[in-house]
Design a protein around this nucleic acid. Structure first.
Lengths: 137, 137
DNA sequence: CTTTCTGCAAACGATTTGCAGCAGC
DNA sequence: GCTGCTGCAAATCGTTTGCAGAAAG
């Protein structure tokens, strides 16, 4: 959390538009490929700035690269489907049934542990059709 | 996946015992603190060896440090409760109700995307009582 | 004995940061 | 014009690896 003293520059506009049109979490490499005019260090600084501003969220995958997506305020609540071979991440819709089960699990966890739970992440992990076709690895 | 040509040395025994007695995912720093006689590089090599052997699993948290826990073959299926302030991770039990909702979500995702789903991760994210007491950050 | 581990220090790769000039407001 | 952003290159930090000696079987 930090300053609201932020400027909505060309680079940041481009970053947000890239995330919007992707509709799935992108790695820094993917963002750079989509915005060739912006350098890597600025991209890192901009995701940080936009995370502080509440517009972007960092998501953890199975590989060592961070990925970034629009905050749920902007994109709506959803879960992820992750390929454990290539690391690609897709958004998937959350069913009300699943959400209810998660809310109940959160209630139980708060009661048992003293945590206050205010979010959840659900990742389905598997292999995308592409990687399955290429033979595992 | 790799060799079974592995020796069950003092260091590996200590690593497994540390994970067993913790009952929750530990970072490399935490493992090192619990096994002062083993160096950092050996610990990294040993978690890798034990992951290859199927005894240990790497888990992604909210911070940049990897954490490690016993494979579910040994510890049973469970989910995680993560403190977004200090990064600590606790194990929590999965309810049958939640598991059923997840299985259904996986079925739908496979149908929609062509992925084959073979695992899932559920993380409840919040703030532990300790961090709440200390005032956020 | 042979093969796999271990410790140490150097190497890596992703991410961060200091600095000087440019751009938003 | 003042303040925040950008590019560049150097620094940082978690993690990996090469090598020579120690330990497992």
């Amino acid at each position: 959390m930090a300053q609201v003293e932020q400027r909505y520059t060309r680079a940041r506009r481009a970053l947000v538009e890239t995330l919007v049109s992707a509709g799935r979490p992108l790695s820094i490499a993917e963002i750079l490929a989509a915005t060739p005019a912006i350098t890597q260090s600025s991209t890192y600084r901009n995701v940080t700035a936009l995370i502080d501003a509440g517009a972007v969220r960092r998501v953890a995958g199975t590989d060592n690269h961070s990925r970034f997506e629009l905050a749920e305020d902007l994109s709506g609540h959803h879960h992820h489907l992750i390929c454990q071979t290539c690391g690609h991440v897709l958004d998937i819709a959350a069913s009300p049934w699943l959400e209810r089960a998660l809310a109940e699990a959160a209630r139980v966890a708060e009661e048992d542990t003293g945590f206050s739970v205010d979010d959840h992440r659900v990742d389905l992990v598997g292999t995308c059709s592409q990687c399955r076709r290429d033979g595992h690895r």
